[in-house]
Design a protein around this nucleic acid. Structure first.
Length: 556
RNA sequence: GGCUCCAUCGUCUAGUUAGGUCUAGGACAUCGGGUUUUCAUCCCGGUAACAGGGGUUCAAAUCCCCUUGGAGUCACCA
């Protein structure tokens, strides 16, 4: 049995130009690093795929190389624009640019597999001519039967290779008769493929256990493994960084590269992103299960709250936390999402948590990617959000909130100076309560009409309706407030404090009750600042309305 | 089931390549205390982990073997 040595010890370019990166085997490679992300156009960008893309982007940028976007649409008939749009949008939103790919082209185009057929055809001819691949006329049902028989038998299924017994004349006849066949790669059964993965180290596969994979259909159209290999080679990809689920495809791809005479790229199989609290790969199909998961709940609740405001019903799962667009709609910051993603499976050291994209770019290395799958943690994601929101310039906070409020029809003209000034003031009051832009809705009391303010009924019953003195007290307080000449935070603070002392009521009772009547909630932004911003007229009117409410309910 | 990968606090992770101040560090969450005579912040502190079993060694989270558990993948999908 012969063993194929790891890729980097075979062939390839070796010269003494300045080093750009070091391969796993320590070989100095002078080629510019080129990484790629090759999504199939599915109509949405998966959050886990986004992390894989991020790692690819980071590695390319870290090495001053190129990041390529290639669209794996060999099997897609759908509307490409519709299917690709959300993917490109996700990249743009997060600020991950691509050097070659859709919309911008490049020297290795086209960047859609559906348009690269000539390359696959040529490679296929080469393999067939060299005898590395063969036409397999076996009927699919027969192949399937053998597979099942092997399974029943508890033995390993490998291809029958019956078609290999055919003479050239027979093959010609079959072809002339129009008999259907597929092209399979001839696996060298007495070999082992040894790969040296940047993340996993040495991984071995025994070729004797592998069926001959189909690389092209009867019509010559290429299958994934084949198209990928042809493209990766033609596009001069130096590092294939992809999700762990592709690990088992790798021996086939290595064999294909060898048969084609390519320099094999370096491999890095990153663990997939698991769903919160589990080790299972996050999947769009499991959304309903996630919705009830205690670890995931917080994220759903936050999103449902925000999305319902802006007219998106997230229940049908058209938008879910598996998709990048979800975070954007809820008002997450690119910096926060990026930071959470990079720390999932990668760390710089034992301390660093916060990294900007620029810092990631400088510090990211493949050798610090962890091997095991990691679950996305909504709590930690939110804490990253808080951090990056606090770093965000006021102007950008403002525009993010204006967008949200506009979507929810809580403001009408986002360009209006007065509106902007008010929203800016609310943002100041919100302070660190604002983790995502959607949190601005927690302070919606500043944007609704007095007679449309909803009161937290449970607390209203407890604190006002069922309280002995509340109504009287509130009535008194309203009088004092109406006498207050300068309706700003400081005098309000003083007035409320002395009022509480005079009436001998606890501040812990009075303040929340007042807040409830005026904002509808028992919790919120700084009380005095809120009163000031609402203004005297509004405060008095809301207080009056609350008192009226309580009185009418008490009479019943 | 075959093949392959993985395994440190509840979670994300540092430490494993070169065994030794690791009585295992940090962050998030959680709990307690303090500041803010409201809320949130902020500050201080606490609880909390090397999956199990064998070896090797003066010494193992770290090296070796086995067991267990988890995951990925087994298409004329990508």
């Amino acid at each position: 049995m012969t063993t194929i040595p790891p890729a980097e010890t075979r062939g390839g370019r070796r010269d003494n130009l300045p080093a750009r990166y070091f391969s796993e085997g320590g070989e100095i490679c002078s080629m510019t690093v080129r990484t790629r992300f090759a999504p199939s156009p599915t109509g949405y960008m998966h959050i886990g795929g986004m992390r894989t893309a991020l790692f690819n982007w980071l590695w390319a940028r870290h090495n001053h190389g190129q990041f390529i976007l290639r669209i794996d649409d060999t099997d897609e008939q759908r509307n490409l624009q519709e299917a690709l749009g959300p993917i490109l949008d996700a990249f743009r939103w997060l600020g991950l640019d691509w050097d070659e790919g859709p919309e911008i082209g490049g020297h290795h185009g086209p960047y859609f597999q559906s348009q690269r057929r000539h390359l696959y055809d040529a490679a296929l001819r080469q393999l067939l001519d060299a005898g590395s691949a063969y036409r397999d006329f076996e009927l699919p049902v027969d192949t399937q039967a053998q597979r099942e028989a092997a399974e029943k038998d508890k033995s390993v299924y490998i291809s029958s290779r019956a078609s290999l017994q055919l003479t050239a004349a027979q093959v010609a006849t079959y072809l002339a008769d129009g008999r259907s066949c597929v092209i399979r790669l001839l696996i060298p059964r007495n070999e082992k493929v040894v790969m040296n993965d940047h993340i996993r180290g040495t991984v071995e596969f025994d070729c004797g256990l592998m069926p001959d994979p189909v690389i092209a259909r009867n019509d010559g159209s290429p299958l994934y493994n084949f198209a990928t290999v042809v493209d990766d080679a033609e596009m001069e990809i130096t590092h294939v960084i992809r999700a762990e689920e592709h690990l088992s495809n790798t021996p086939i791809q290595i064999l294909l590269h060898r048969a084609l005479g390519n320099r094999t790229p370096e491999w890095a199989h990153v663990p997939y992103v698991a769903s919160p609290g589990s080790k299972e790969k996050m999947s769009k199909r499991k959304i309903d299960k996630y919705r009830t998961s205690p670890q995931f709940q917080k994220l759903f609740e936050l999103a449902d709250q925000v999305l319902s405001r802006i007219g998106i019903d997230s229940k049908p799962n058209a938008l879910s936390p598996v998709m990048v667009a979800y975070y954007r709609q809820v008002g997450f910051l690119p910096a926060g999402v990026l930071n959470a993603l990079v720390r999932l499976g990668w760390s710089l050291d034992d301390q660093t948590e916060f990294l900007s994209l620029t810092e990631m770019k400088q510090k990211f290395t493949l050798d610090r990617v962890i091997k095991s799958a990691a679950g996305l943690d909504p709590d930690k994601l939110l804490s990253f959000q808080s951090h990056w929101m606090s770093e965000l310039p006021a102007k950008e906070k403002l525009s993010g909130c204006l967008w949200m409020l506009k979507q929810a029809h809580l403001i009408h003209d986002e360009d209006d100076q007065e509106t902007q000034a008010k929203v800016a003031r609310v943002i100041e009051l919100a302070a660190d309560r604002l983790r995502v832009f959607g949190d601005i809705f927690q302070l919606d009391e500043f944007f609704v009409a007095d007679d449309e303010l909803k009161l937290d009924d449970k607390n209203f019953q407890k604190r006002v309706v069922k309280s002995e003195h509340a109504v009287v007290l509130l009535h008194d307080l309203r009088g004092r407030l109406s006498d207050l000449a300068i309706f700003t935070a400081e005098p309000l603070h003083e007035l409320l404090q002395s009022f509480a002392a005079e009436k001998q009521v606890k501040i812990g009772d009075l303040f929340p009750t007042l807040r409830l009547c005026v904002t509808g909630k028992v919790q919120g932004a700084d009380l005095f600042g809120s009163l000031e911003l609402l203004g005297k007229t509004c405060v008095l009117s809301r207080l009056q309305r609350a008192i009226g409410h309580a009185e009418s309910q008490r009479m019943i």
